[in-house]
Design a protein around this nucleic acid. Structure first.
Lengths: 105, 105
DNA sequence: ACCGTACTACGAGAGTCGTCGAACTACGAT
DNA sequence: ATCGTAGTTCGACGACTCTCGTAGTACGGT
């Protein structure tokens, strides 16, 4: 047993704040994470994306992205499947995500 | 006299990094600063924009924006005139600035 | 020359952030 | 039931950030 909130918390579309989104995407690790999710497409096992950090740090970044409203995460067995919330972000900040993700640097 | 680098340092267009821009605009004070500059238009006396912080904090935020490549600052007497680098930002990250600045929230 | 205005520079303090390791929970397979 | 795999949680640490006040520099007016 043990207390376990079975579903992960996500902000509603209307609750997404631009500062939180920008802050979330300003980190190189998180930006890479989102770019990979977008590249692969339909539902990625978060753990499958190679990262230069440990498991706990990965969890931290995924939570930051989720709580900012950038990605949606659902449980699938022992894995977490993540997808970019492109529909919500495009509705709320048209052009933002495309501009950021297509920024070659 | 004293050593005084007479011109302020700005990154070239090609040197602008997306993470720095996002980080710079993720702060509420700086975002407000940039929005005001864009609203007023051609060359604003940075000190004229009302802010809930002290002078030294304002200097800090202006430096952050300048070093990220978001604004250009030139000296005019004892004042600093700031302008958003829309041309450079639009060239490098098309749609980004518009998306961020038009985000009401 | 003096004074006021506009801004910068330099600490300092409080808070946040990114990172890790160790301990824990949850699920699936053998 | 046992083991391994996937992820979370917790505390800790160093680094960075936002804030401020004080002191200093530069320019313009009287």
């Amino acid at each position: 047993m043990g207390t376990m909130s079975d579903d992960l918390a996500h902000p509603e579309r209307a609750e997404i704040r631009i500062e939180a989104v920008l802050h979330a995407l300003a980190d190189p690790v998180r930006l890479h994470l989102v770019r990979e999710m977008e590249r692969i497409g339909t539902g990625v096992a978060c753990g499958a994306i190679e990262l230069p950090v440990t498991k706990s740090t990965r969890t931290h970044h995924l939570r930051t992205l989720r709580e900012a409203g950038v990605i949606r995460v659902r449980k699938e067995g022992t894995s977490r499947i993540g997808t970019v919330r492109r529909d919500d972000l495009d509705a709320r900040y048209p052009g933002l995500l495309t501009a950021i993700l297509s920024a070659e640097n």
